[in-house]
């Protein structure tokens, strides 16, 4: 059976019970990209930030301590895996859970740093992530209520879009927007990047961008064109 999603063919599916992972070339690319970045992160050192010392000619080096480094690397790897999973999952609720996992791990990656400003934005980001889990789950549940299914493949074969599905998908988008920090909610996330530890910060950015691209795909699948 040839199933096409948004005009591209499904290369394969991985059934895990009711949760079916599917891959089109788009999903596969994002999946591979997420895994590749995760791998590089896993083998990288952190950079040393060099800052000019105030009032003298010396330099100040900011390094990531060993313990903190290990902790953050662990979280970064988990985040990368979660991102990779979110790229291929074929179930809306599963997707929201992946997004939540990414959100909480993102907080953790910057949660152990010493800069107060960064901690503050991590906290504010955490608040948003918490608030955003509401629209995420509510969106998924409204779609479930309206269609009777949360499998993306099953929704793909439906031929109609009800206002309730539209509402649900808007909420879903808003939830992802909050968890990933697109404009105009970018400030908390951007401020988190001022701390050293570039490979780990990269995964925060990577996850948010990939997830937002993926949620666009899901929205397009849920909402059929007129």
């Amino acid at each position: 059976m040839v199933v096409s999603i948004l005009g591209s063919q499904i290369i394969g599916i991985i059934p895990l019970g009711d949760i079916v992972f599917y891959m089109t070339s788009f999903n596969l690319f994002m999946f591979a990209a997420a895994l590749a970045f995760t791998f590089i992160i896993a083998i990288s050192k952190t950079e040393t930030q060099v800052e000019a010392e105030f009032g003298s000619l010396g330099d100040r080096e900011i390094k990531v301590a060993k313990k903190e480094f290990k902790f953050r690397r662990f979280l970064a790897i988990i985040c990368g895996l979660a991102t990779a999973g979110a790229m291929v999952t074929g179930d809306i609720f599963d997707f929201t859970l992946f997004v939540c996992l990414i959100g909480i791990v993102n907080i953790g990656i910057v949660g152990a740093v010493k800069q107060i400003d960064v901690l503050d934005s991590a906290f504010q980001y955490g608040l948003i992530a918490m608030i955003a889990s509401t629209p995420l789950f509510v969106g998924a549940s409204l779609i479930l209520a309206a269609t009777g299914t949360i499998s993306i493949l099953a929704i793909n074969s439906l031929t109609y879009t009800t206002p309730m599905m539209l509402f649900g998908s808007i909420l879903l988008f808003l939830g992802v927007a909050g968890e990933t920090g697109v404009a105009p909610f970018f400030a908390t996330k951007a401020e988190m990047f001022r701390t050293p530890g570039s490979p780990f910060l990269l995964i925060i950015h990577l996850s948010s961008l990939l997830v937002i691209v993926r949620v666009i795909e899901i929205l397009l699948i849920i909402n059929k064109p007129f």
Binding site: C100, I104, G108, G111, F123, G126, L127, M130
Partner: peptide, 10 residues
């Protein structure tokens, strides 16, 4: 989970 983590960060 989120409350737990965020409280600690706060």
């Amino acid at each position: 989970a989120e409350i737990l983590a965020i409280c600690e960060i706060l």
